[in-house]
Design a protein around this nucleic acid. Structure first.
Lengths: 124, 124
DNA sequence: TCAACATACATCAGTGACCGATACATATCA
DNA sequence: TGATATGTATCGGTCACTGATGTATGTTGA
């Protein structure tokens, strides 16, 4: 299998959400859309075009793999699951995000004219 | 000024690095390339084409602003700085990344067949 | 009963951020 | 003097994402 081990290209958000959603276990297309919405607190709605092209691409890259088909209520479901390579990539991506977030936070605190209320910020 | 407050589109890595690099204070083009390289541990080299198109776009969006020009050793330097909107966007993006990273981590731990050694992982 | 809606699959053409290549100018170094 | 580093900037190509569209079945409500 051909795996670009040294790839450092950051995952786009929809792609990340697909891998993260599959981390729990196998899911089918529409299940992934629902899970991505949950993961992002409703911020991101996976579009079908994005989903199916991403699914195809990730399968070719060996990050996910088909995991059976079922017919539920007369409707076909195609399942996918994370491969070990996919889990490794996701792990790497999480580490990248955490490190960048941490470093950006430090720099923001050092910002000249740093203020606690910069207008429009919601601290929940 | 027109600001898309509810924008939920994730920043791409180069764009994020530019904003994060500017969080410390004003910087010029080549300074940003160096800072982005530092921030990403040498993983990401900002390309000039990416840099200048992003600088233009971010300026139009009001996230950064020109912050003076200088001539050092006969070479022109154009400086940029974060606007308050830019700092707010960066803050929001950091929160998004941290939340997604945390949630993805939880799901990965619940992964069926979860193993500690999945091949190729470097725990430093 | 039949139209509207939800579930579930899929494709096509357009957009926009990113990137390799290229260009120009000045300073330094071998 | 030719290569390398710093500094600016543009052009055309690639590719992930997206809006629109298509097909099919099951459910819900007037």
């Amino acid at each position: 299998m051909y795996v670009d081990v040294m790839s450092s290209a950051a995952l786009h958000e929809p792609t990340f959400l697909i891998l993260a959603a599959l981390a729990e276990g196998r899911k089918h297309g529409y299940g992934l859309i629902a899970e991505a919405e949950t993961l992002s607190d409703g911020r991101v709605t996976l579009r079908v075009a994005t989903l199916y092209t991403a699914l195809d691409r990730l399968r070719k890259e060996g990050l996910i793999a088909p995991a059976g088909e079922e017919v539920i209520d007369g409707r076909l479901r195609r399942y996918y699951e994370l491969t070990d390579d996919g889990a490794a990539t996701l792990t790497q991506e999480i580490a990248r995000m955490e490190q960048l977030a941490a470093r950006a936070t430090v720099r923001l605190r050092h910002r000249p004219g740093f203020a606690f209320g910069w207008g429009g910020g919601a601290w929940a």
